[in-house]
Computed example of a mutant assay.
Amino acid sequence: MLAMAGSQRRRSFNRALLRAALERIPEGVESREFDPSRLPFYDGDLEAAGDPDPVKELKEAVRAADLVLLVTPEYNGGLPAVLKNAVDWGSRPPRPQAWDGRPVAIMGATPGRLGTALAQRSLRESLAGLNARVMPQPRILLAGAGALFDGDLRLADEAIGQRLDKFMSAAAEWALRFR
């Protein structure tokens, strides 16, 4: 499994959610994190000169992954640029592109009330256009994230932990469908 959080902030709820999810991966599932902030912003001129090393690494990691787990915050009702940029780089060249047929699971956390619903919808739409296989259910859209994590950004809500266990099991099963 390849895992990415779409927040660059060190004390991000989404990085904390990713950490909690990786602690709950089913036995036998291996994970690798990729930091999308390492990617330059997509630029056709840069691409024409040859993919930069972090872009090559991203594309290879997405292609090699049985599942890609994307954890997204919601910024002003939308998707964070750093995560959209990773999707865009992975979509190049047009065919074959790294997201084609790749199983993906999406989750997110926010202090706000909508639980990253708008960001997740946008991410799902982008990935659907690239023929990624986005897991439809269950969904993790955490609202009020400040109350769900302790001061060390460890998940402090047992009910959310149980939902996260189910989500990670479902994601592993989702990946098996496309193996």
Rank of each mutant, 00 (worst) to 15 (best):
E158F: 09
L2Y: 02
P111T: 08
R179N: 03
A16K: 10
A61T: 07
L114N: 14
L148V: 15
K59H: 11
P93H: 02
P54F: 04
A143N: 09
V29F: 13
P54T: 00
L67K: 06
E57T: 13
G151E: 05
D152H: 11
L22A: 09
T116G: 10
P52V: 00
D51P: 14
L79T: 04
D66G: 13
L70P: 03
E33V: 09
N14A: 03
M1I: 03
A5V: 04
P40F: 07
A105I: 01
R177N: 10
G108A: 01
V82N: 08
R124K: 14
N131G: 06
L46E: 00
R9C: 04
P80W: 01
G77Y: 08
L141Y: 14
S91A: 14
A145V: 09
D150H: 11
S126F: 12
L70T: 00
A48Y: 08
T72I: 01
N76V: 06
R63D: 12
M168H: 11
R113C: 05
G146S: 11
D150E: 06
G108Q: 01
A172H: 10
L142G: 02
A159T: 05
G6P: 11
F41S: 05
S37K: 13
L127M: 08
D45H: 12
M4D: 01
R32H: 13
P40W: 05
E57H: 10
N85K: 04
G44Q: 13
V62C: 09
R63K: 15
P138C: 09
P138Q: 05
R179I: 01
A109I: 08
A117Y: 03
Y42R: 01
L67Q: 03
A119M: 07
A105R: 03
D88M: 07
G161N: 06
A145W: 06
V68I: 13
E173K: 12
